[in-house]
Each structure stands twice: as structure tokens, then as C-alpha cells.
């Protein structure tokens, strides 16, 4: 776990690989090619790269039009603008007709850092998850991001892949076989299950180690595909441990915490604690400072688990 990389770094690199393999891959950007790393694709395939300028809504609806001509269109920008500003283009022109457009913005969550609350989207998973037919993937590290972006190109229909700016420890490696819709048990446990997504997966593994020292056996499950949710894996683990912590860099409303709570309420009710942004906006700061400020550290996950165990 020595090398750390951001999930956004996987974007430009994987697009190049996809572009070499398939002439129908087209990349759209909205004036953020350096930040999102799509500039790498632009350099190798200038004829299949289109900078839409600062016009995210047009980028999304154009991507839908391109898809009708057989292109597999990847759209960039920051998560705030791709899912927020262009929400209705994504909903009505991409998802409603089920067109083959990939929405892979970067700089999701509060770890955007110093840019502050206007740029820190904590609602994007909720916004994408509520759209019928949308696949929603939140990679936990660089390698999972690479595999998820490559897999998104194979799925016929709209896919949201949430990428981030923060550098993260490696959990997977080049040989990892990402299967959309499949939860991954990273650590077995019996007392409590921690369902985590995105940057919170590595923190959950640290939390589980610390909990073990305190005599608590925590199961850690990576939910990288939030939609479609791996219902069986979640219910199975909840049956086994009887207690659930959900950890995500997103509002506690509408994200993975909500998805897990909705499922378990109906199928197997157990105590659930949500670790996430508690219905407030972000602010400027260093990523590590912000994670602490908003209660998204491994220590916060441990505390939530202990709370469920009455410790």
C-alpha cells in the first residue's frame, strides 16, 4: 500500500487504451481536459476528442446525439457540473432513451479540497442513482477505476463512474477482475459489517484493523457498484453480523447509506449507522482536514461500529 494514486488518473489512461481498441470511442470534455486527464486522449486521438467549452448541458445532449450514430461517448467535466448542472440532459436525453453515453466526471466529493463547497458534490450518487436504467459505479482505487471505465464501454447504456482527485492507497492490482454489480468482500468478520464505497474503502480496512485490536471482528465489503446493488451480498452479510455501518464520501441522504438502508429495511432489518456528510455543504480546506471535519476518517468508522455494539 505504498504507492498512492487518484482514481482520476485512470481516466485518461484507460480512454487511450479504449480508443486504440475501438474507433467508435469519442471523448467530450468541458474545458477541464488537464484536470480530468482527458488531455491524454486528445493528444493521441485529436479527431475523436471534442472540447465543448464551458457548456456541460450541451456536452451531454450532444453525447446523446453522437450515440445515435454509433459512437460510444465518454463525457468529462467535474462531478458537480456533469451531474448537477446537466442533470436534466442526462435524465431526459441520455437515460430516458437509454443511449450509450458514459458519464465519468472527476473531482467528486469533499476531497476536491481547497476549491470549496461550490465544487464539492455530495449529491451526485443520489442524483444518478434515482434515474431508471443508470449504472452507478464508485471505484475504490486507481486499479478499480481503470477496470470500471473499461467495463463501462462494454455496457450498452448509460453508466456513471464517479472519479476523484484525492490520491488513494492501492487495494487492487492490474489483475483485478471488476464485475459490475458485484460486491467484494475484502475482509471477513462476524460482529459488524462495514459497507464502503470510493475513498472510504481503504479507511474502512484501517478501521477494521483497529477494531480487531479492540476485539471486534469487522467484515469489510466494497460496494463499487451502487446501482444495480448486490442485494444478496448485502443481505447475506447483514444476516451474518447483524450490524451494519455504511461509509461514503457523499451525503448520508440518497447515497450508498440510503441504498443499503432501503434494502435492509425491507429484506432484513438490522441496526444501521451511516458515516457520510451529514446534510451540510462543504468548505475549503486540505482533503485530510476536511475528512476529519466532516467525520469521514477511519476513526469515525470505528466509532460507528463500536456504537452499534454498545461499546
Amino acid at each position: 500500500m505504498s504507492e498512492k494514486r487518484a482514481t482520476r488518473e485512470a481516466y485518461g489512461e484507460t480512454l487511450i487504451e479504449l480508443g486504440r481498441a475501438n474507433p467508435n470511442i469519442v471523448v467530450l470534455e468541458a474545458d477541464l481536459a488537464k484536470s480530468t486527464t482527458t488531455i491524454k486522449f486528445k493528444k493521441e486521438f485529436p479527431d475523436r476528442f471534442f472540447d465543448c467549452g464551458v457548456a456541460e448541458q450541451n456536452m451531454m445532449a450532444m453525447a446523446a446525439g453522437l450515440a445515435t450514430t454509433g459512437k460510444i461517448c465518454f463525457t468529462g467535466s467535474f462531478a458537480m457540473f456533469a451531474t448537477g448542472r446537466a442533470f436534466e440532459q442526462v435524465r431526459n436525453t441520455i437515460a430516458y432513451p437509454s443511449l450509450n453515453v458514459k458519464i465519468c466526471p472527476t473531482h467528486a466529493g469533499i476531497t476536491v479540497g481547497a476549491d470549496g463547497g461550490s465544487h464539492q458534490t455530495i449529491e451526485d450518487i443520489a442524483l444518478m442513482r434515482v434515474i431508471p436504467g443508470m449504472t452507478v459505479i464508485v471505484p475504490a482505487d486507481y486499479y478499480e477505476a481503470k477496470k470500471a471505465i473499461a467495463k463501462a464501454a462494454e455496457i450498452d447504456g448509460p453508466v456513471y463512474v464517479r472519479l476523484g482527485r484525492a490520491t488513494l492507497p492501492m487495494i487492487f492490482d492490474e489483475d483485478y477482475d471488476f464485475v459490475p454489480g458485484k460486491a467484494i468482500v475484502l475482509k471477513q468478520g462476524t460482529d459488524v459489517t462495514i459497507f464502503a464505497t470510493g475513498i472510504m474503502v481503504s479507511s474502512s480496512l484501517v478501521a477494521a484493523e483497529n477494531l480487531a485490536k479492540a476485539g471486534i471482528s469487522a467484515e469489510v465489503i466494497n460496494i463499487s457498484t451502487i446501482k444495480p446493488l448486490d442485494d444478496n451480498a448485502i443481505i447475506e452479510s447483514a444476516v451474518k453480523t447483524g450490524r451494519v455501518v455504511v461509509a461514503e464520501e457523499h451525503s448520508i441522504i440518497g447515497g450508498l447509506g440510503s441504498a443499503v438502508a432501503e434494502l435492509l429495511c425491507e429484506k432484513h432489518p438490522v441496526p444501521v449507522a451511516r458515516v457520510g456528510i451529514k446534510d451540510v455543504f462543504g468548505r475549503s480546506g486540505e482533503p485530510a482536514e476536511l475528512l476529519k471535519y466532516y467525520g469521514l476518517t477511519d476513526e469515525d468508522i470505528s466509532q460507528a461500529a463500536k456504537g452499534l455494539l454498545g461499546k
Partner: peptide
């Protein structure tokens, strides 16, 4: 050719079609 109804988006999608062609 494409689902429309929410105004403005069909025009933008038509630009995308023209680009694809």
C-alpha cells in the same frame, strides 16, 4: 431519431448527430 420534449435538448442532440456523421 431521438426522444425530445424537454426544450433545447433535441437541437443539441442534432448537433451531436451531425458531428457523428
Amino acid at each position: 431519431e431521438i426522444s425530445t420534449g424537454s426544450l433545447g435538448m433535441g437541437f443539441s442532440a442534432a448537433v451531436g448527430m451531425a458531428l457523428g456523421l
